[in-house]
């Protein structure tokens, strides 16, 4: 698993070097392009695709027009009461038509109840993929997006939006912890269709995305679910979920807005599974450890839809910053996760 993680980092490094090479090499001078108008390529989503914070848009990331290519790197930090997530990624936009992206994310759980499980499980010699002081869920996301038709910015005389289709492949590293949380799969794909349009008279960009997925918390806690605390009765039913981004431009370099991302209910009301034991076995363990009554705390709450309010600022075409307030509802066994989001997007 560690090796896989290293190879992921190496991919990131290679991509960064490649991107840097593209900028510096004079051979690429003719094909490098940063001709888009400020902010019209969107910023860097947690999935790596160009868009808002969580919702991928139909825009192709980077500042290239159809005359060339452009790349970018993004870093996002999410701070919620029970967990922190870092996202590091790169993407490249080709001729305002195709976008390729890669993101490595690390979600650190900071849950006393899960840590108690870890302590007890450790004492009982069970591997639940978490230890008392470091429960990290790592995930890699590979993405591709193709603009099908339309121009989000310049077709002000019609209602036709820019439309793109994209695919994401997400691969979780901490297989044991994903299964402990009751998910079926640790790796899966998602497909989305996004429609984006800038409505000039109200200086507002509107994006609607439909995503075909079975993800729990964007895939950070796996995909699908398993019944009965084992990996035998598992289901991975993908459904189409809706997502909306609205960004109002108050100036050519500043946008404020909000997002909504519909989430599923795969893990709602499910207990945390400990290495295939159902909770009755665990409550026995907890009882003997003097921790009876914890079973309720180990039942996962109803997964909340994601909402956020954001402000994006792009002082120039090379860097932009996003701060957001997130309302993510319940995540796994942690209730009401509201917190802050900071992202920076470096464009070459």
């Amino acid at each position: 698993m560690k090796r896989l993680h290293k190879s992921g980092l190496r991919t990131l490094q290679c991509a960064a070097i490649l991107a840097a090479g593209l900028v510096s090499s004079s051979a690429w001078a003719g094909i490098y392009n940063d001709g888009k108008v400020l902010l019209t390529g969107g910023v860097f989503t947690v999935d790596g695709a160009g868009g808002g914070g969580a919702v991928p848009w139909a825009t192709i990331s980077g500042y290239e027009t159809r005359d060339g290519i452009n790349g970018s790197a993004g870093f996002t930090y999410v701070n919620l009461p029970a967990l922190q997530v870092s996202f590091y990624g790169v993407n490249v936009g080709l001729f305002d038509r195709v976008e390729l992206s890669y993101v490595d994310s690390r979600l650190s759980l900071n849950l006393p109840n899960l840590q108690t499980v870890a302590l007890v499980a450790d004492a009982a010699g069970l591997d639940v993929g978490t230890d008392a002081w470091n429960s990290t869920l790592g995930m890699q996301t590979y993405g591709v997006k193709v603009r099908l038709f339309g121009d989000a910015v310049y077709t002000s005389d019609s209602w036709i939006p820019q439309v793109a289709v994209g695919g994401l492949y997400k691969d979780n590293r901490n297989v044991a912890l994903i299964h402990t949380l009751g998910a079926d799969k640790t790796k899966d794909y998602e497909i989305y269709v996004a429609a984006t349009k800038v409505l000039f008279p109200i200086s507002t960009l509107v994006n609607v995305t439909a995503r075909y997925t079975s993800a729990n918390e964007d895939g950070l806690t796996g995909f699908g679910y398993c019944n009965g605390g084992s990996q035998t009765d598992c289901h991975n039913k993908r459904k189409v979920r809706a997502e909306v981004s609205i960004a109002h431009l108050v100036a050519k370099n500043t946008a404020i807005g909000g997002e909504w991302q519909q989430h599923g209910s795969n893990l709602d009301g499910r207990s945390v599974n400990v290495a295939g034991l159902d909770l009755s076995g665990l409550t026995g363990l907890l009882g003997s450890a003097g921790l009876g009554g914890l079973s309720g705390a180990l039942t996962q709450k109803k997964e909340g839809d994601w909402y956020d309010l954001f402000m994006a600022y792009a002082p120039n075409k090379h860097i932009s910053f996003v701060v957001a307030y997130l309302m993510f509802g319940n995540i796994a066994v942690a209730p009401a996760q509201n917190g802050f989001y900071f992202a920076t997007h470096l464009t070459f």
């Binding site: 392009n33 001709g35 108008v37 100036a251």
Partner: peptide, 28 residues
């Protein structure tokens, strides 16, 4: 090229700022 068209759009926004024309009016 699209890049050149966008360059004129950027000049247009700069002109609006220089002439104290509101961003929303400029978008019209």
């Amino acid at each position: 090229t699209m890049t050149q068209f966008n360059a004129v759009v950027e000049a247009a926004y700069n002109a609006c700022e220089r002439n104290e024309i509101k961003y929303y009016a400029c978008n019209d």
